[in-house]
Computed example of a mutant assay.
Amino acid sequence: MSKSKPWHNMSAIRTGRSFDLGKMSLPQLWFAYLTYPTILFYFALIIASTISGVYLSHPLWKSFLTIPTVIAIYPLAWYLIHRYILHGRWLYRNHWTASLWKRIHFDHHQDPHLLDVLFGSPLNTVPTMAIITMPVGYLINGWGGALSAFATALVMTCIYEFFHCIQHLAYKPKWKWVAHIKQLHVLHHFHDENGNYGITNYVPDRIFGSFYKESRERLRSKNVFNLGYDLEEAKRFPWVMKLTGAPPKDRPDSARQSANQNSHAA
């Protein structure tokens, strides 16, 4: 897609076709993001849970306490999920969970620039958000607090998903902080996947020793694109390979070009 025609082929986004973030401009990303069904669903849930939370909050001020609480615990929860579940190997080694692992993370690392696999499925993300945050909110202020906490998690997820898109976009951020987190995430996808698990918040990485700032700090991982699901693993646990219809790639077809684009953008 040409950057001189930022709205070119926008009808394809509406029909759900895959878009390569490595070839999209920032205006195209904004359009895709704000019209993407998953994001629109999150927006609807934010409105519904906020209104319901306010209505059920007695007193209302207590429910506001859920906002800083969720902001504090949410990055840690997602760090643990990302590191020990999404990058774990037990999901693909089980016939019943192989398709889940493929959808929620393997496809994204196989081709990091595909928009439709970058966004998690609401069937997976919404229950996870609810399980992490609603019990905490309930302890603070009953059902009003639980819904307020859930709304906060949804807002954070929308922010998280947008910056995640920016990190895979062929775009050089002007804001220094965005450029910094983009560089860290590019390292996670193109150098060593066993680190920099955060997207917008790398405090847990620093706490648990998985943070690294530059590629020279670590050797390049041979599993950065397949997450350890190589040909040998695929022979032992073939379910993901069968679903993919092809052997796992050690390097995506466009990885060399995309890595160069991202390194310049970062």
Score class of each variant (00 low, 15 high):
I140K: 01
I140T: 01
P173V: 03
K172V: 08
V117Y: 06
S148Y: 05
S210I: 00
L100T: 11
A153W: 07
N201P: 01
H108W: 09
D192H: 05
H188I: 01
N141C: 06
F163I: 08
M129R: 06
H188A: 02
Y197N: 06
R206Q: 15
N194G: 01
V136Y: 01
G88Y: 04
T125G: 02
E161N: 15
A130V: 06
P204K: 06
G209D: 10
H108G: 09
W177T: 14
D107T: 11
V136S: 05
Y160R: 05
V117S: 14
L147Y: 03
A179W: 07
H180C: 10
T200S: 15
P135N: 13
V186E: 14
W177M: 13
A149Y: 04
T125L: 14
L114I: 15
L115D: 09
M156C: 13
L115P: 02
Y160L: 15
R103G: 06
L184E: 07
T157F: 08
N141T: 03
H95E: 15
R93Q: 15
A179C: 06
T128W: 12
A130Y: 11
F162C: 03
Y197G: 12
G145V: 12
H164R: 07
A179L: 14
L154A: 03
S148E: 02
D116N: 14
D111Q: 09
L147M: 11
G88A: 06
G137N: 08
W143N: 15
N94C: 11
F190V: 14
A153Q: 00
N141Q: 07
M156W: 07
T200P: 03
C165R: 01
L184N: 08
H109S: 05
L147E: 10
S210Y: 12
Q167S: 14
L100R: 04
H188P: 01
W177Q: 10
I181S: 14
M156F: 13
T152M: 13
M134I: 00
H185Y: 07
R93I: 03
F106G: 00
L187I: 00
A130E: 01
H164Q: 12
F163E: 14
F150K: 07
A149N: 11
H109Q: 06
C165T: 10
R93F: 05
A98N: 04
I132T: 06
C165Y: 02
R89I: 06
H185K: 03
L91I: 12
A170L: 10
H109K: 06
I159P: 00
V136G: 04
S99E: 11
S99K: 13
L147A: 08
M156I: 10
V155F: 05
R206F: 07
D107V: 07
V117M: 02
D116T: 15
R206S: 03
T152R: 00
H105R: 13
K174V: 11
I104G: 00
G145I: 08
P127M: 12
